[in-house]
Amino acid sequence: MDINEFFGTKKDAQPAGQRPVAASASLTVAPLLYGLEKSSGAYRLIVDNPAACSRRLKEGEVHLALIPSIDYAQGKGSWLIVPDLCVAHSGASKSICLFFNENVSRLRTVALNKNTPSEEILLKILLNERYQSLPEFIYTESDPQKMLSAADAALMVGDAALGFQNTNPHYIDLTEEWYDFTGLPFVASLWCGNELLLNLRDVERLRASFAFGQEQMQSICENWAKSHPLAVSDCLDVLNKKVYYTLKEEEQEGLKEYFRYAFYLGFTDHIPDLHFWQEP
């Protein structure tokens, strides 16, 4: 697939005509973004942390963003979900984990990072409902060693979680816990867009970007391993077995269940309906 040909852009296209799109950079989202990164002219990809991507969408800096799923529930903006695509886990993910120093049943403090709100709410749901635990939560910088020095346990997400497992085997895989608890997948991220600006071409390009990424899994993992403490085989294992990207009926049910618990425990003030972009 020639991604520029599909996008209707030229390799020497100028930045002036590009539409800004926000997403975070991590191994688990890399296949979704690969086509956007390799194409020219259609979009200007802004890489930021997940919480900041939601803020950029809310404030109108971008018309399209890959956002934490909880921000869709908490957001008051007029957002539509891009159909068919998401970041989801059914069972163990290896990338959303609670690391701890001692017995997880005796947690008094848990270190968090403000940039991963969906995973933070997932952790709080599971601690409340599965472990009947109400520890104190402390926001710290996202350094694994410092987090575990400051608290009894630490929530780590994405590349931080994947890398830290090599040195600390004491952890709970939270998406595995969620699946055991509900029998449903956990949807971590959604492509969302401004309802007045999101269009068919955007949706087609996001789908094409992911299709291109699927074809290039080996290249994605080889490039990722060069700059991260993970072997190519470990990266391939994560992308082929621990994460997937379809937003079908089961994923939607998992998302709704997650929103119900978030509302029940007071993390949101309503249970949102899922509003998808639809072709006119």
Rank of each mutant, 00 (worst) to 15 (best):
S24W: 13
F99R: 04
D180G: 04
Q132L: 13
T116P: 03
A25W: 05
F210R: 00
V104L: 10
L148Y: 04
Q278G: 03
V47N: 02
E61S: 14
D159L: 03
D159S: 08
I70N: 10
S209G: 00
E222V: 06
F186T: 05
P20F: 09
K226W: 00
Q145Y: 11
F164G: 01
L190W: 04
S69W: 10
Y131P: 09
K256Y: 07
G35P: 00
W277N: 04
C235H: 00
F137L: 12
G91A: 12
F181A: 09
A111Y: 09
Q18Y: 05
A88W: 04
L36A: 03
E251S: 08
S227I: 04
D48M: 09
A65D: 08
S39H: 00
Q252W: 05
T116N: 13
D273Y: 10
K256E: 12
I125L: 12
D143V: 14
E177A: 15
C221Q: 03
E136M: 14
A16F: 14
W191T: 06
Y244R: 08
V157L: 01
D84L: 08
F186I: 07
A225K: 02
A211M: 02
I70R: 11
E59P: 02
T116S: 14
T28G: 01
A151Y: 08
W224L: 00
S118M: 01
A231R: 09
K146F: 05
L107Q: 12
L66Y: 10
L107A: 13
K10E: 12
G60Y: 05
Y245C: 02
L123I: 14
T268D: 04
V21P: 09
C221I: 02
S142Q: 13
D2L: 01
D152R: 12
L200M: 15
I271D: 02
L134K: 15
R55M: 09
I81R: 11
L126G: 11
E37H: 01
C192E: 03
Y258F: 14
S95L: 00
D273R: 15
T246A: 14
I3L: 00
M156A: 08
K94T: 12
A88F: 06
V82E: 02
L123K: 12
G75E: 08
L198S: 07
E204H: 10
A30W: 02
Q165G: 15
K76Y: 14
L64M: 07
E120K: 14
M217C: 02
A211P: 00
P50R: 02
I81H: 09
E222N: 06
Y72W: 03
T9L: 01
P15K: 01
E222I: 04
L184V: 10
L196D: 14
E61H: 13
C221H: 01
P117L: 07
S69D: 08
L123Y: 10
K10P: 00
F137I: 12
A30N: 02
H170I: 01
F181R: 10
N101P: 03
P185M: 09
G77K: 11
F186R: 06
A211C: 00
K241T: 15
H170P: 00
F263R: 14
M217A: 04
P117K: 06
Q18S: 13
